[in-house]
Amino acid sequence: MRSAPFLAVLAATLAAFGGYALLLPVLPLWAAAGGSGPGLAGSVTGVFMAATVVSQLGVPALLRAVGHRAALALGALALGLPAALLPLSPSLALTMPVAVVRGIGFGVLTVTGASLVSDLVPARIRGRATGVYGIAIGLPQLVLLTGGVWAWSRLGPTTVLLVGAVLPLLALPAMLLLPRRVVPAGLDPAPDATNGPFVTGEGDERPGGADPAGLRARSAAGPWLVMLVCAASAGGVITVLPLTGASASAAVALFALTIAQLAGRAASGELGDRFGLAGRVTGPALAITAVGAGTAAAGLGTGTSWVVVLGAGLIGLGFGAVQNDTLVTLFDRAGPGRSGTASSVWNTAYDAGTGVGATALSAVLGAAGAPWSFAVAAAGCVLALGAAPWRRVHDDPASG
């Protein structure tokens, strides 16, 4: 985890996710400034995530075609450059197409980054490595989910939108430290006349290579469904909080959610690697998320700000642990050389859930009020408990 490529991935992640985190909670506000109601304003996030999910399905093939470094660069450019157009108008005619292009870039970034993390470290420390990667994802959100809402009211939309455009572009220099392709841990490198000494194990036809389709649907279904539902709950909360009208308490609640999410990811990785609990953290973490959403609903219903903040913190803690545990479970079940496929499966669940949650909970907010939107999030997490991946698969990556 101290190698230059791994540190480069972390640096690029900090910058790219900075642009994502800064604009995520404020773009619905920008759409609302153009006259869109809560449902349509929240759907900007839904469209962004829909484009993300569709693009993620093709990233394993992109990695085989151009390599990790070029894929990361393309993703950063697509996430950053279109955002520079947003200050021109809050109209949905502009914000929706920009959301589509940015979503495609974000999809490429998320799958490629997680795949690199798995390929650059041995399996015995994969939980900790994904935890550290999760912190690199979470730190920009810790500062900018809250800071974006604050800056929006203090500095104005134009400044915030342009900074959100620039941040992903700052990831490009770090990518120069990456090889074009990376050999997954556990596979022997084979020099290649075209690609140089670094070749990917994904789709490799030589002995020891792996078929990227090797992660079977039965094996992936449980972790995927849990990640989908939990991401819908947390992503919906992130979108709904700024739309409740209490900007100060929303900013504090988003800060609590994000810092607790970092703690949840780190703790899950440590428990998984040190005590062999990978795959067993998800169930309790889902329960914590559900309790947090219920607590936040109660706080919104009574107008008690500190209860909302407490609930948001519990949501973040549970969500962070679910993220790490389900990702490691999918890497284990996929096996060496299939990290891109496992990452694609996990990221589609994460981002589809975020988009569905943002759209659905915004609609509930408009129809029934904020407490009910949080109550729906809690109910979803309770229902997902039946799909929690309770065990870690070592012997047969394709087994369920």
Rank of each mutant, 00 (worst) to 15 (best):
321 A>D: 07
321 A>L: 09
324 N>K: 07
344 S>K: 00
317 L>I: 11
332 D>S: 13
326 T>H: 05
319 F>N: 15
335 G>M: 04
319 F>T: 12
310 L>K: 06
313 G>M: 11
333 R>A: 07
319 F>P: 00
316 G>H: 05
337 G>S: 04
338 R>A: 10
318 G>E: 07
345 V>F: 10
314 L>E: 08
338 R>T: 10
309 V>A: 15
299 G>W: 03
298 A>N: 01
303 G>R: 01
318 G>Y: 07
329 T>P: 01
331 F>P: 02
297 A>C: 09
347 N>R: 04
318 G>V: 12
306 W>M: 15
320 G>W: 02
310 L>E: 08
301 G>C: 06
309 V>L: 12
345 V>L: 02
310 L>I: 15
337 G>D: 05
297 A>M: 03
309 V>N: 12
303 G>M: 05
325 D>P: 09
349 A>D: 08
348 T>I: 10
330 L>M: 13
338 R>Y: 05
326 T>I: 02
356 V>Y: 02
345 V>W: 12
316 G>A: 02
342 A>K: 06
297 A>I: 05
305 S>W: 08
338 R>H: 06
337 G>I: 00
339 S>G: 08
321 A>P: 04
307 V>N: 09
300 L>E: 08
327 L>Q: 14
322 V>F: 02
313 G>N: 11
303 G>V: 11
311 G>F: 08
311 G>P: 07
349 A>C: 03
343 S>C: 07
297 A>E: 05
299 G>E: 12
318 G>W: 02
332 D>E: 11
309 V>C: 12
328 V>C: 06
335 G>T: 07
308 V>M: 11
335 G>Y: 02
329 T>C: 08
313 G>S: 13
334 A>G: 11
344 S>Y: 03
321 A>C: 11
302 T>N: 04
342 A>H: 04
319 F>K: 04
341 T>R: 11
353 G>W: 03
316 G>T: 06
343 S>P: 05
320 G>Q: 06
309 V>I: 15
333 R>T: 09
347 N>W: 00
354 T>N: 14
313 G>I: 12
317 L>T: 14
339 S>C: 00
355 G>I: 00
328 V>N: 11
320 G>Y: 06
307 V>H: 05
350 Y>V: 13
331 F>K: 01
309 V>Q: 13
324 N>V: 14
327 L>G: 05
326 T>K: 04
310 L>G: 14
316 G>S: 11
338 R>F: 06
312 A>Q: 13
302 T>I: 01
304 T>H: 10
326 T>V: 14
309 V>R: 12
307 V>D: 09
307 V>E: 08
316 G>F: 00
351 D>R: 07
327 L>R: 04
303 G>Y: 01
